[in-house]
Design a binder for these strands. Structure first.
Length: 261
DNA sequence: ATGGTGGCGGTGCCA
């Protein structure tokens, strides 16, 4: 079972890239972020033609998440707990039946939080507290789950091409990192770091300032696994080549493989 | 030090 996450930065602009990648990578389940589309604007026919069921939490112009699955999926949440009525579209969660029991997959688009010291940063931290609550509730089931997405947090200095330049950025604040550690310390596994202890493993390169050409990346897209899922983790990957293709997203897909045979 | 890019929507906002 291959589970992937990808911030596509507009699913309409990226339909060609997405369909080509689905055909190559053949993930079983994918969570997408920043689809920047309402449900009716999503390229449903193209993605369904590739064999995927499509579930969408859409929004006009900004944010927006989706869950694609080769297998039947039951949507279990479209927001985190304690959502406001006008909640931005940043969370989707579904449940898939596997030979080894149910697998829950959450798709996360965590608030960026810049600039630090503003309402936006407070919202980021509050959102992380709500994600923590959701993770606690899921952990109580003692089942497999994967929370994948654009976390907008670089967990450590290793995950930043220039830590000094990013010291004031919301993605690298001690408070942001502490909130992510609180989540991990519940007992979750950062899938990429389970295999790559001492290499950066960037997942994002800004469009600006030649970041891709210079190798100036960040690791902000993560797959966090429950103990029951982590016990079955056999492989991880970062599809870095996507960033070098024509009209790329600024993020690349990150995936993990679970042995459910 | 500034501006650098991209997407949305049709102007600035967001990242």
């Amino acid at each position: 079972m291959k589970v992937a996450t990808w911030n596509v930065n507009s699913v309409r602009k990226r339909t060609g890239n997405l369909v080509a990648w689905l055909a190559r990578a053949k993930p079983d389940v994918v969570v997408l972020q920043e689809i920047k589309a309402q449900e009716a604007q999503f390229p449903r026919l193209e993605v369904e033609a590739a064999g995927y069921k499509v579930e969408i939490v859409g929004q006009k112009g900004f944010n927006g998440v989706a869950l694609l699955s080769l297998h039947p999926v039951e949507i279990t949440a479209r927001t985190l707990p304690d959502a406001e009525a006008d909640e931005p579209a940043r969370y989707i969660e579904g449940r898939i039946t596997t030979p080894k029991g149910p697998l829950t997959v959450g798709g996360i688009y965590l608030p960026n939080g810049n600039p630090v010291g503003t309402e936006k940063f407070a919202y980021k931290i509050a959102w992380m507290d709500r994600l923590n609550q959701r993770a606690k509730n899921l952990l109580a089931r003692e089942e497999m789950f994967v929370l994948g997405g654009d976390y907008n947090v670089c967990p450590t200095e290793m995950d930043v091409f220039d830590p000094k330049a990013f010291a004031g950025d919301a993605l690298c604040q001690p408070q942001s990192r502490a909130a992510l550690r609180t989540l991990l310390n519940l007992g979750l596994t950062d899938a990429v770091r389970a295999f790559h202890l001492d290499t950066p493993c960037y997942t994002f390169w800004d469009y600006q300032a030649g970041a891709w050409a210079k190798g100036n990346g960040l690791r902000i897209d993560h797959l966090l696994l429950s103990p029951q899922a982590a016990d079955r983790l056999t492989a991880v990957g970062i599809d870095k080549a996507e960033r070098g293709l024509p009209e790329p997203s600024d993020h690349v897909p990150v995936w993990c493989e679970l042995d459910l045979a």
